[in-house]
Amino acid sequence: MFTFILRIIGIIILAPLAGGMLTGMDRVITARMQGRQGPPVLQPFYDVLKLLQKEPIEVNLMHRFYVYIALIFVIFTTVIMLTGGDILLAIFALTLGSIFFVLGGYASNSPYSLVGSERELLQMMAYEPMVLLTGIGLYYADNSFFIKDIVSAQAPAILSLPGIFLGLLFILTFKLRKSPFDLSMCHHGHQEIVQGITTEYSGRDLAVIEITHWYETVIALTLVFVFFATKAPVSYVFAVLACLLAYFLEIVIDNGFARVKWQLALDSSWIITGVLGTVNLIILSFFR
C-alpha cells in the first residue's frame, strides 16, 4: 500500500517533468528545422515559473475553476494509465478533463475563447472515435482492458493492430496540438483567433494549462508505448524509442503542414478512423 502511494506520487511529479522536457526538446528541434538557435531545453520550465509569479488577472470569477478541474482529471488519467489501469476508464477520465477545459473557454464569455472552445470541441469529436477504437482494439488483441495486462502480453499489440496504430498516430496530432490540426489554440503566436481557448487566461491559470499539456503529452505517448511493450523487458526500450520516434514525427508534421480548415480536419480523421480502424477490427475478427 505504502509503495503504491509512493508510486502515485512519483507519477504525479515525474510525468510533468518528462512532458516539460519533451516540450523543450520539441522547441529546440523545431528551431533547428527553421534554421534558428532556439531556446534552452529547460525553457518551458522557466516559462511556467515566470507565469506563476505574475499578477492574477481575470475576466470573471468562474472561468479559472474549469482549468483546475481539467488539470485534476488529466492527472487522474495519467495515474490510471501509468499504474496499469483500465484503458477505457482512462480515456473517459481524459475526456472529462478535456470537457472541463472547453467549458472554461465558454465560461469566459469572450468571442475568441468561444471560437476556440467550439473548435476544440470539434477536434474532440474528430479524434474521439479513434481513441475509443484504440482502447477497443487493444482489448480485442489482448483480451483485457487493463494496461498492465496489455504490456505483459506475449507479442506486441502492434503486430495485430497496425491499422489502429496508424490511425492513432494520425489523431495524436490533435492531442499534441500540432499543425495542421491546431485549430483551437496553438503554441506559435500566429493564429487568427489570438490564443483561442486560452485567450482570457493569464498568470497562474495559464501555467496550469501548460502543465496540463505536459501531462497530456505523457498520456499520448503512453498510448504509443502500450502498442510495443511485451512481457520481455527489452521490449520497453523499443517502446520508448517508438514513443520518441512518434514524437519526432509529430514535430516534423507540425513544421511541414499549414493549419487546415475544420471541414478537412473532421473529414480526414473520421475517414481515416473509419477505414483503418474498421478494416483492422474486421480482419482481427476473422482470426479470433
Binding site: E58, N60, L61
Partner: peptide, 8 residues
C-alpha cells in the same frame, strides 16, 4: 484578483 474586460 483584478477583474478586467474581456479581450476584443
Amino acid at each position: 484578483r483584478r477583474i478586467v474586460p474581456i479581450y476584443m
